[in-house]
Design a protein around this nucleic acid. Structure first.
Lengths: 386, 386
DNA sequence: TGAATAATGCTACGCAGTTTACTAAGTCCG
DNA sequence: CGGACTTAGTAAACTGCGTAGCATTATTCA
């Protein structure tokens, strides 16, 4: 509320930022285009973009074959590779590290399997090795990384420490933020995986057009991530969306209908069992169809609770089971219609198992935006922690 | 995202607004104080505040008895009575109209009983009469009103029309916004009563320190209003918080435990019956205590669903039953502990039956702020609709 | 009455964006 | 092939705003 007074130097900063924002996420632009986009005059846009070039935020693209009449314009481009961010998905079975530039272009990624039994030290070492491999491949040093976000399974508090419970063995005692800070000086954030996947859907997934989103991470565990008014909501203690804890909501047991189906071949792992049941249901097995139906019926109660509370525009069905969304979406929609006052759109995620890492990238980019590109605009270097 | 470029005149506007914000909500200020608060230099603050006086946004308070050495400073004061807003609570049994100035100081209010059976036309006529009485008492014309917000029972869509259902007879066909627009040219908004009461708690109630709030309007009907990140959330279709619709949540029946208690004197109205049961429980009647317990147990399931979804800092127990909060809060807290991962603070509302109208005032003031005090700053007159 | 104190008022200054005019570098067409 | 046309780049004059510093004014205290 306390608006603060502005003087000329601050005005220049603001205009410089305005030009920078106009430069980002578009094809290389001429000064005239920048002037139009920012509302500034051409000379003003010109000197500002020159300054950005001098500082290293932008670069010139000399005119090629001119397609139009008149003197060809120099085109300026945001130097997206001035910095990079890391998005990391630490799961029970896999580690996925993604590296992208300041415009979100993927410049490297590596997935490696993880030992489900591995303790926190072993797992964090594996994370370090995967990060190193990605950086080496991309020819980058730790100082080129401007922000890191890591996704982990289970609720996470404001400091990135797992609370209540997590399927990662021994992880409650781990401090992944502190661990990453020993090597990186940039801002580091650790967040719950469902929340990150929700962010990813709004960035590159099926919910780009919505501001109010409920994301379901459906698998052997069911979780939810909430985006309200375009912003990820953690809740006051970081446990927003954990509706599965309510006894009347049988999310914990819902996947049991699939995993414990009697027809499953013995020796199949739980995840494979669920896939088997979905496939059997798809092929007409009536027992499997009943199991799927029960799963959906139990799932729907929790979804309905989320939907009735938030009245979102879209519910995204993601996670491991989203490959079987063809069997789930229509019945789930019918179940929701029974419970809800207004049934939101229901869509299946298409981000496969990259959602968490993508969402991590997005949050890391948001961190960069808020730290670097909002207040003062120094030459591009990695910010020192948060 | 599209930051827009700024020139000198815009900068001046911003600084003028900055001075205006520094002036509001504080004791009359000297130029030096304003300069300090805005970060501007004294001369700048001086010419800006002079302009505000010339435009009618501020006025001078000539120095009285000076308490300190040196030349006494002129003090400037925000002209809070440059405009006023109306907050209206249209309930089944009563109509409450409140009038306040731009700083939120109450300058008039009137409550009158309403016929529960009255149709929309009759009810809106009663509203008009009540508004007129309040305006007459305060010596004001319709053009002195800069914004109006009205609260009604039941879900409301973005245009202020009741949807799904409402306890107000025939109200589904009413268009209260259109009705008020026939007489007022200022912005008019109609909102659900629970949502307004939630806003009031954050403004003048027990939740002033929180940004994430679940408000319960507990009475014969139970409803909820949600404030997330300091902002009232309506949901995409305006039905956020209507968790009572879920069958697993027995909010519709919960108050029945009280109203249908066998010991209640015959002939008592439902509202009186609940009060009687609470009183009996307070005096040790074991049957009544059981009824209250059952009520709380059923209530808790829905509250838990809201809390698990949103993870708020505070849950406010308001509405008609909040007079009996002494009996409800502790048991409800215990019930929530059974269901929730993190139990939020639980507080009882103290706003009595003025919460809805107060919240309506606050939203109307917010409307004024966003329309008038944010972009350009013309002389103070009532804005033309939204 | 005069010294101390603090607010007010005035003027010169620097800076940022705008406007305008002019030059440069291309295309298009006769 | 050259001139008209179009658009980009550049340099100047202009306007407006906030700042800095100093003189002026009004009040208290000794």
């Amino acid at each position: 509320m306390a608006m603060s007074g502005t003087d000329l130097s601050r005005m220049r900063e603001m205009n410089q930022l305005s030009v920078l924002w106009a430069l980002r996420g578009t094809a290389p632009s001429t000064v005239t285009e920048l002037a139009g986009r920012t509302g500034l005059s051409r000379p003003a846009a010109d000197v500002l973009v020159q300054q950005l070039v001098a500082d290293g935020w932008a670069e010139v693209e000399e005119p090629g074959a001119s397609s139009t009449v008149g003197r060809p314009a120099r085109r300026y481009r945001f130097r997206a590779n001035a910095g990079h961010v890391l998005g990391i998905d630490v799961g029970v079975h896999k580690i996925l590290v993604m590296l992208c530039d300041l415009e979100g272009n993927l410049v490297g990624s590596l997935r490696r399997p993880a030992d489900p039994q591995a303790g926190p030290d072993e797992r964090l070492t594996a994370v370090d090795e995967t990060i190193d491999a990605v950086l080496r491949e991309a020819g980058m040093a730790v100082t080129d990384i401007w922000a890191i976000t890591m996704g982990v399974t289970g609720p996470v508090d404001g400091n990135g420490r797992s609370i209540i419970s997590t399927p990662l063995p021994g992880w409650s005692d781990a401090d992944p933020v502190a661990h990453l800070r020993t090597r990186f000086t940039c801002p580091v954030r650790v967040e719950n995986d469902c929340k990150l996947a929700a962010v990813a859907e709004r960035w590159k997934g099926v919910a780009q057009d919505a501001d109010d989103i409920v994301y379901l991470l459906a698998g052997l565990r069911t979780g939810a991530g909430l985006i309200i008014d375009g912003t990820l909501r953690r809740g006051h203690g970081g446990v927003a969306g954990e509706i599965g804890a309510l006894k009347a909501v049988r999310w914990l047991n819902a996947p049991e209908h699939l995993a414990a189906h009697p027809g499953v071949p013995s020796g199949a792992k739980p995840g494979e069992a669920a896939a088997w049941v979905f496939q059997a249901a798809r092929e007409g097995d009536s027992g499997a169809k009943t199991a799927v139906q029960r799963y959906i019926r139990d799932l729907a109660v929790g979804v309905a609770a989320l939907v009735l509370t938030l009245d979102p525009q879209i519910v995204v069905y993601g996670g491991g089971f989203s490959r079987s969304a063809d069997l789930v979406l229509d019945p789930l929609r019918r179940e929701l219609a029974k419970h809800c006052l207004r049934v939101p759109e229901l869509r299946a995620s298409t981000l496969r198992d990259e959602g968490v890492a993508l969402g991590a990238l997005r949050l890391a980019l948001d961190q960069v935006d808020s730290t670097l590109l909002s207040s003062q605009l120094a030459a591009p270097v990695a910010p020192q922690f948060s």
